[in-house]
Amino acid sequence: MITETFVRGRGPLYSFDPRPKFILLVYLVVLFLSVSSALIAGILVLAVLLLIWGSLGFKKSWIPVKSILPILILTAVLTPPFNTEGSVLLNLGEHTILTDGGVRLTLVLILRFTGITSVFYLFFSTTRTESFILALRSLGLPYRAALTVTISLRYIPDMFNTYHRITDAHKLRTAGTGRENGGFRHRLGSLFPVLISILIHAVKTIPSLAMALDSKGLGRANPRTSCRKLEPWMAISRQLFLTAFLMTVLTAVAVLLPL
C-alpha cells in the first residue's frame, strides 16, 4: 500500500511555491509554541481551520482534530489537576482539581496541539512530496537528507493504512465468533497482534526499500538531476513578500497583544 498525504485540488495554497510555504510552516510552528494567550492561539487555529476548509473542503477540516483527539482528551483531563495556579474553581476534598490558571493552560495546550497538527496537515495536503524534496534541497539540505525526510513522512500514512488493512483482516477472522465486539480488555488484547504485525511490516520494509533505492540507482557517483524544477527565487518574489508580510503582522499581533 503506497499512500501519500497530498490531496489533489486547486487553489492559492496549491500554487504557492513550496519554499515560502515551508518557511511559513516553520514560522507558524514556532508561533504556536511561543504564544501563551488562549485568545490569540484560538484565532490562529480558527484561521488555519478556515484555510483547510477553503482549500480541502469542510469534511477535511476536522481530520487533524480527529487524528489527535485522544491526546486532546488526555490533555484536558490531566493538565488542570497538575496546574493549580490562580483562583480555585473546584476542590475535591483537600485536593484542588480546577483553577482558572489550569483552565487557561489546558486551553492553550489544546489549541497549540491542534494548531501545529493543522498547519502540518494543511502543508502536506497541498504540497506534493517531490516539491517538498525540491524545497528542502533548495534551502540547502543535501538530497539524501531531503529524501530521508520525505520517505519517513510517506511511511506515516502508509503505516496508518497498514493498520487499517490489518484490522480489516482481524475483523474478517473474528467475525461471527461473538468476540468481535468484546469489552475493552479484549479489544486492548487484540491490539497487540496488530501492533506486532505493523512492526514486522515496518521492519520488513527496511531491506526492501534499500533494495528498491539501490535498484533505482540511488547513491551513484554522478550528480543527480530532477524531473521537476522550482521557479527561480526572483519569479516568486511576490510570494516571498507576502510570506514576510504575514510573518511580520502575526509577530506584531503576538507581541503587542499578549492577552
Partner: peptide
C-alpha cells in the same frame, strides 16, 4: 516493494534522476 515515490511519473523518473 519496489516503489519509492508516491506518483507514477516520479516513480518512473527516479532512475533517470539517478
Amino acid at each position: 516493494r519496489q516503489t519509492v515515490t508516491t506518483e507514477c511519473y516520479t516513480e518512473v523518473a527516479f532512475p533517470l534522476e539517478s
